[in-house]
């Protein structure tokens, strides 16, 4: 599986990024979900599937959960959940990855 390979060669990147670390509008591709099965499945049903694009959006005022654009809809997640979703930057992302 693609995500498994990625995890294995993860050393080529400085450190695996999580969805929680990204800036607003920074397009990324989901690699894997490090969450209990039930929660992971719910997120996948909402479009958080490995290989899918995610765009971080607005944060709730005062630093609450954050809205993510994913698979045609917008879903709010808490920071702690977003921190368990590992991503790589979108190849066409404006923010270039230096390597």
């Amino acid at each position: 599986m693609d995500s498994a390979n990625r995890a294995a060669i993860g050393a080529s990147e400085p450190s695996p990024r999580t969805l929680a670390e990204l800036a607003t509008g920074e397009r990324c591709i989901l690699e894997r979900l490090d969450l209990p099965e039930g929660l992971a499945r719910r997120l996948m049903e909402l479009g958080f599937l490995p290989g899918h694009e995610i765009i971080p959006g607005r944060r709730a005022p005062g630093g609450g959960p954050r809205v993510f654009q994913v698979d045609g809809s917008e879903v709010a997640l808490r920071e702690e959940t977003a921190a368990r979703l590992y991503v790589r930057l979108h190849p066409e992302s404006d923010v270039a990855v230096t390597s």
Binding site: L39, R42, L43, L46, P65, V67, S73, E74, V75, A76, L77, R78, E80, T81
Partner: peptide
């Protein structure tokens, strides 16, 4: 443990 908040907007 870690009650989550997932809400579709």
């Amino acid at each position: 443990r870690g009650s989550s908040f997932i809400l579709e907007m």
